[in-house]
Nucleic acid binder design. Structure first.
Lengths: 164, 164
DNA sequence: CAGACGAATCTAGCATTGCTAGGCTAGGGG
DNA sequence: CCCCTAGCCTAGCAATGCTAGATTCGTCTG
């Protein structure tokens, strides 16, 4: 998993081949299939889950006066500095299933942390979902240079204003 | 391009192989490489561009009293009903480059249409960017069942409220 | 202590992928 | 009548994900 993360971060997921991984860890390919019987997709899914766990810690760690801006900044920085990992979490055909009984707990806890930041009250869940959607949208559009990098802080401030 | 769209919409982009496309149009593979010298990625990029053009029309066509909700609903419906196309536009390693001198005009015009919906004034560009980011985030999180489908209309109303 | 067993690993190969080199055929110009 | 170009195809290459079968080695049994 560490090897997959490293290669994906530097050369993209298309460079994460089973042969490459096997060479990186000093074993032959079949060994990978004993630890991950479903093959490459399962490896990617495992990396994605570790990413959700890491992101959850990050989001949960923001309890400031202006928690909204703090959280938004942390989220976007995470997505930018771990672009390959973030891709695996949100944009790879993955084995991770959501809204199902088999949804791994890592995937739920991150959202719960967001709800906590936004506070309770009526419609709090919808607002938390939209806050998350906003952050995700900004993260990927910034990555693809569809949003100008210069106004990053301005965007964060506006997001906090919208949701405050 | 039509064949690629059809196959992608029904079986996903991984089923869109060059051999499959060649068979679908009744020609051999090399013919495809004469029309799209860069191969499969160029075909996907072309499909994506046509998607941007289609999305632009849709967004530009909303001039109601509550244009915000109207636009949001149109955008999300488009993303849902053309999931394969939307994937090509936003989540495929593509040849389309943004924020560059070679950015195809289709990619810019859609954003301009969004700006028009949100109105002018100071900070209008940032607000339009965030509106777009919000819609994109909701679109992909809904697709992955990370957001409950039942509250779709509730979400749209809340988005319109946030940006009004 | 000999032999059997099971876990761990490897070599070698399959089918499929994107892509390309080279050859074939038809139709118009010298 | 010959040649050239445009258009197309057959055949093949390297790389991919994955797997069947063989090999090695330590441990447990009789």
């Amino acid at each position: 998993m560490a090897a997959a993360r490293t290669i994906a971060e530097t050369e993209g997921w298309s460079a994460v081949t089973v042969r490459r991984l096997a060479a990186a860890i000093g074993y032959s390919q079949p060994v990978l299939y004993q630890h991950f019987p479903r093959g490459r997709p399962e490896i990617i899914a495992a990396v994605a889950r570790s990413g959700f766990a890491q992101l959850e810690e990050l989001v949960a760690g923001a309890d400031d006066p202006d928690a909204l801006a703090q959280t938004a900044r942390a989220y976007l920085t995470f997505a930018r500095e771990h672009a390959g990992l973030y891709t695996a979490m949100f944009e790879m055909p993955s084995l991770n299933r959501f809204a199902s009984s088999q949804t791994p707990p890592e995937l739920r806890r991150g959202f719960d942390a967001l709800v906590a930041v936004l506070g309770r009250g009526p419609g709090a869940d919808t607002r938390a979902e939209l806050f998350w959607s906003m952050l995700h949208g900004v993260a990927v559009l910034e990555r693809d240079r569809r949003l100008p990098a210069a106004q990053r802080e301005e965007r964060i401030a506006e997001i906090a204003r919208l949701f405050s």
